[in-house]
Structure formats: C-alpha cells, structure tokens
C-alpha cells in the first residue's frame, strides 16, 4: 500500500524540519520562502518519508482497538510467538534510501504514490545471521500527473539483532 493522496502542508513541513534539527526558514516562513529561488515553502530533502502519515495501511502506526507490538502493561502488546501483521516488523532494519528529485514538492501540492516492484536478495551476515534485502520503488506524482520524486528504499530482515555495523 502507499499514500494515494499526500497533501504537502505547511505545518507538517515545519514539524518535520524541526525534528531533523533543520532551522532553514524556507521550511516555515512563507514570506521568506517567496523571496528565495525556491519561491515557496518547499519540502525538505527527505520529506517524502512522511508520506507514511497518509498511507492507510502503514503498519508502523498504532490503530484504535488493534493489537500493537510496543509496550504497555507488558513489554509487548503482542505475544512474540504470535505472527501478526504488526508483530514482525522489529526484525526489519533500513539498509538504504535513495531520492531522485525531478522537482521539489511545495506547499499546496497533492502527491500520489505508486509503488513499483523491486528486487529481493539474500546475503549471509557476520553478526546478524542471514540477511534478506527487499527493495521498494515509489514514484510520487503531483496533481498534474507529473513525476516529482522517485524514492528507492531497501529494507533488511535479520535473523538476530544487529547491534554493530550492518554488513
């Protein structure tokens, strides 16, 4: 699944920029941004990651009255032996991320994500056991159907926690 409708909003950009310690006014001051080459408040370089907020099936967000694998009364809200949609994500780490900017999205854009099939491959790691890599390519198109950003992510599933460098 992916975000079918990802509205690029000013307050979301401001909060995202704050969270990556980016105090560039082009991300929160519309008047300042209008006077820059960008011409408007634009999305910070990795902002497409926040499309998760608009993905109805995004698995790493707790849902009302659904089991969640984080702690509450117990260290996990899900029996670790039970395989469930939200129980199996902790073993997946982020290995790579690539952005290609055809243009930088700006406040007011409404993007639509299309997920293209990616590759899967395996490798034997020194510390974390067998590593299974899985690639996802996502194209973000604007309200006019023009390609704005292409994102390629690679996740890796590990047999054991990888507490040092990933191989």
């Amino acid at each position: 699944m992916a975000a079918e409708r990802f509205p690029v909003e000013a307050s979301h950009i401001m909060m995202f920029a704050r969270s990556v310690y980016d105090d560039n006014p082009v991300y929160y001051d519309a008047e300042y941004a209008a006077g820059t080459e960008a011409g408007a408040i634009i999305a910070p370089p990795t902002f497409m990651q926040a499309a998760a907020q608009f993905d109805p099936a995004w698995p790493l967000r707790p849902r009302i009255n659904q089991p969640w694998f984080g702690s509450g009364a117990n260290p996990s809200g899900i029996d670790p032996d039970t395989k469930s949609e939200n129980g199996g994500n902790a073993g997946t780490l982020h290995a790579e991320q690539h952005f290609e900017y055809h243009r930088h999205p700006r406040v007011g854009d409404v993007l639509c994500a299309t997920v293209l099939p990616g590759r899967t491959w395996e490798k034997e790691g020194r510390r974390a056991g067998k590593l299974i890599f899985n690639e996802t390519i996502t194209e973000y198109r604007d309200q006019g159907g023009e390609l704005a950003v292409t994102v390629r992510g690679v996740g890796v599933r590990t047999e054991r926690p990888a507490t040092q460098n990933q191989e």
Binding site: E37, A38, I42, E96, Q97, F99, E100, Y101, Q166
Partner: peptide, 18 residues
Amino acid sequence: ARYVGDGRLTKFGVRFTA
C-alpha cells in the same frame, strides 16, 4: 541543502552503515 542551496538537490542516496 544548506550547502548547495534550497531546491538544488537532484539526487540524494545513502546506505546506513551503523
């Protein structure tokens, strides 16, 4: 973005190594 200027990046990719 501070170094190259607002909206000037055309590609940015990384591997997370640790």
